[in-house]
């Protein structure tokens, strides 16, 4: 008690730790708002994609990290979300922002329904069923009887949404990508806050209890079946919203971009960032967005080899991912400060 009080009173360069944190948050926020105007459109586009990935990873993290259900097929929900948005916009002229809740809802239902039989599957079997789902997804999207809606192998080409108003800052106009940056940032912020609320609450505790002690959780009155399929639904909803947002950001959907490797990419992000942590999704997203770009310079196949090495290496050295590393460093620093 006295010790923590003493830490709070410590001043670094005239400010308490608390004041530093507030200052950091303000600077960070300003930076977030200004950043798109400091970067070229293409860089902004990359950041948009990273934010999209972060939402998808958060979705998988809820299921795998918090609830202990292994999914190797979240790319399927990303695809459903993406196609829902694309079809609504392209065929029915629905405004882009209105497609997100629809995509989320469709995936919530799809995830819940897939979660129902998956309930009876544990560990490997669930991994296997979702693996099969991921492998079959591109084929289903190409299916000729759906072609009228899905555009078949060609997919659907969309228009990037125009900014609702003209604006320029630092001599840079609010371009389509810059506008999408703010839109994506807002959606991501909402999704992260929502996740934080869910996971810190009663349902979150039930999810973790089921992961760690299923029998005890059931004995304490947690409705295992309900919580597990609901988690599957919510997780799919997150990934679906990400898929819809991704379709808007990229302005294109096609079956072959939703193959097994998309599912694995999301898994890589979740594992590298760190399972069972909300902010970890951001680190995971940064990893899967930028590491391939770097590795790409060696060979077209190199990014995947790097992913593989990271996946296996992390399992041996740092199963808790970047978040685990940060916590470790944080604990060391605190010890050092005292």
């Amino acid at each position: 008690m006295t010790r923590s009080g003493a830490v709070a009173e410590l001043r670094y360069f005239g400010l308490t730790l608390r004041q530093w944190i507030i200052l950091g948050a303000i600077v960070g926020l300003v930076l977030l708002l200004v950043m798109p105007f400091l970067l070229r459109n293409y860089r902004v586009f990359q950041i948009n994609l990273a934010m999209v990935y972060a939402i998808a990873i958060l979705g998988l993290n809820m299921l795998t990290g918090y609830n202990g259900q292994i999914s190797l097929g979240h790319g399927a929900f990303y695809a459903i979300g993406g196609y829902t948005a694309a079809i609504l916009m392209h065929r029915y002229g629905v405004p882009y922002w209105a497609t997100l809740p629809v995509a989320g809802f469709v995936c919530l239902v799809a995830g819940f329904l897939f979660g129902l039989p998956a309930l009876r599957l544990q560990g490997h079997y669930l991994a296997l069923a979702t693996f099969a789902l991921a492998l079959a997804t591109p084929q289903i999207l190409k299916y000729k009887h759906f072609e009228e809606f899905t555009g078949g192998v060609q997919g659907i080409v969309l228009d990037k949404p125009e900014p609702p108003f003209e604006f320029s800052f630092l001599g840079q106009a609010l371009s389509q990508d810059r506008w999408l940056y703010f839109f994506t940032l807002l959606v991501a912020a909402i999704m992260f806050l929502l996740a934080w609320n869910i996971l810190r609450g009663r349902i979150g505790r039930a999810m973790i209890a089921i992961r760690d002690q299923p029998i005890a959780a059931a004995a304490m009155g947690v409705n295992l079946a309900m919580v597990k399929s609901l988690t599957f639904g919510v997780s799919a909803m997150y990934t679906g919203v990400a898929g819809a947002l991704g379709a808007i950001v990229v302005a294109f959907v096609a079956p072959d971009s939703f193959n097994i490797f998309l599912s694995i990419t999301i898994l890589v992000g979740a594992v590298v960032g760190g399972l069972a942590s909300i902010p970890a999704a951001i680190f995971g997203a940064i990893f899967i967005q930028y590491v391939p770009n770097i590795a790409d310079q060696i060979s077209k196949s190199a990014p995947w080899a790097v992913y593989g090495v990271f996946l296996i290496g992390l399992m041996y050295l740092m199963p808790t991912g970047v978040m685990g590393l940060l916590r470790l460093v944080g604990a060391r620093l605190r010890k050092y400060a005292e």
Binding site: I70, F261, I264, V271, A302, W304, Y307, I312, M315
Partner: peptide, 20 residues
């Protein structure tokens, strides 16, 4: 989960090195 991830890691490594 650890084992599944190692298997997926292997999958990715074999797939990409074959292509490489």
């Amino acid at each position: 989960l650890t084992n599944v991830i190692v298997f997926i890691g292997l999958l990715v490594i074999f797939n990409s090195t074959a292509g490489w």
